[in-house]
Design a protein around this nucleic acid. Structure first.
Lengths: 255, 255
DNA sequence: CGTGCAATTGATCCATTTCAAGGGCCGTGG
DNA sequence: CCACGGCCCTTGAAATGGATCAATTGCACG
């Protein structure tokens, strides 16, 4: 099901948007809707994408391949996510974006985005937030370098659940979780076997229920606590909070 | 030693800049130079920085602390690097930036940057590249999730060496490497003990010479090969390459 | 009714962690 | 001038989390 409201919904998590702005975003999502099946590449390493992708439905992911064949998924792209907003300069991709499930998306020329930003400054701001949150998320993933298997997986689940929630894709404490255990392994830097065993332990502890690609988190707070998850990096609902926070810092010497 | 040319040098790796543009960048680096000693925080988690930092000399790093005290360094900031260029929206920091060594830097109000970008579109472009390369680097770090200790450390060394090279801070095949083994451990997600042993092995293999905070890479190509390093993610010297790369991709169905 | 992929299980191996302690260097203070 | 504490690097031995190898089950699909 294609939802042309996803982007507006997603961006509303950063700033309140007017009806007019939402309408403009809705128009974007009608541009040139495309559909691809699972496992299809959207952009490949070495290419210079000439546009921004907006995901309307389905999951995608970015991954890097090493010479010896190992693959590392470096991020998941969910409905409402924009890819390579930053790539105005048409840089060469250093990784591949690929569909995890069947996918609906729109390919937006950069000018189209620029034009909307000019007309609606608040959308421009929201897009900055969007980008910021993507970068923060990337940083969080690197923190997993010092996390245990439990923490890596649990953390990922918390993140995905919350991100899906912001676009209305959770039902109570449940959500879809399309990636296979092998893909979870590629995302966390673990072995499929070990992911499997870790999942079983987490199930045994009652932290998660995961079956048939459906994830249920009986007690989100407990899971978050168990895996040391703090959601601040998603930067949800901070935009309103004003800008006047003053603390003493860096007793620097003026030169 | 403060080098007011670092930024121009750094950005020249992305696009050729005119003398006038370089001059403008040089003026930036004179704005309000500040100096702090090692281990001082520049911005702390929870704050809303109102400006961009430009590092003139010395090293800094971003890190996250977990509730149980573990620390993870998520990136190093070198001379010529700009921090939080993206943070126009004044988001709350979800991590801390701290000086690794004594540091010279400039704090630039966002308007100052915006103004320069308006006057010199090519600088704006270069700043996009700068940002892009920072994000790519962050992605590369998450690839370390599936790297061995040797690869993590070797990869980090290759990256730092090349980044330093772009701002003229290498001497032949040598460069400064101020982080302690404990800090290298925090950056790679390993134990200090294991970092120590891994370094010894890499020394024994002749891949590196590391003593007194000076790193020497006798054969960069060999090291790169040994740790599966590919420098494309730094996006150096791609800007000139034109934008017309066409390949067939994503045999998508128009709807 | 096979074929193939996802999930699962068992047994073994190894990389990395943990714990514990010693040595070198440097700045500080007696 | 020497003793001291602190930080950084180093070493050893033991414990363990996660990897590896190999095989089995279950299920969807042509």
């Amino acid at each position: 099901m294609t939802n042309e409201d996803v982007l507006a919904t997603r961006l509303s998590n950063f700033t309140k948007l007017s009806d007019e702005e939402c309408q403009a975003l809705r128009m974007l999502a009608r541009d040139r809707v495309r559909r691809v099946g699972a496992r299809v590449d959207l952009v490949r390493e070495g290419e210079r994408p000439r546009s921004v992708f907006l995901i309307l439905s389905g999951w995608a992911y970015r991954y890097k391949t090493m010479e010896d064949g190992r693959r590392q998924i470096v991020s998941f792209l969910l409905p409402g996510d924009l890819c390579d907003l930053n790539n105005f300069v048409l840089a060469e991709m250093d990784h591949t974006i690929s569909a995890l499930t069947a996918l609906h998306f729109v390919e937006l020329p950069h000018e189209r985005v620029a034009q909307i930003c000019e007309e609606f400054p608040r959308i421009a701001r929201a897009l900055w937030w969007h980008m910021l949150s993507a970068i923060s998320t990337q940083r969080q993933w690197t923190v997993s370098l010092s996390r245990s298997a439990h923490e890596r997986i649990g953390h990922l689940f918390c993140e995905l659940f919350l991100r899906l929630q912001t676009v209305g894709l959770t039902r109570g404490n449940m959500c879809d979780l399309p990636p296979t255990q092998t893909e979870l392994a590629e995302a966390t830097g673990l072995t499929p076997v070990h992911v499997n065993r870790t999942l079983q332990e987490m199930r045994a502890e009652g932290l998660i229920v995961l079956k048939d690609r459906i994830l249920e988190i009986p007690d989100l707070a407990r899971l978050q606590h168990a895996v040391l998850f703090t959601p601040n990096y998603l930067h949800l609902g901070q935009a309103e909070a004003g800008t006047s926070v003053e603390k003493d810092v860096a007793p620097a010497v003026e030169i």
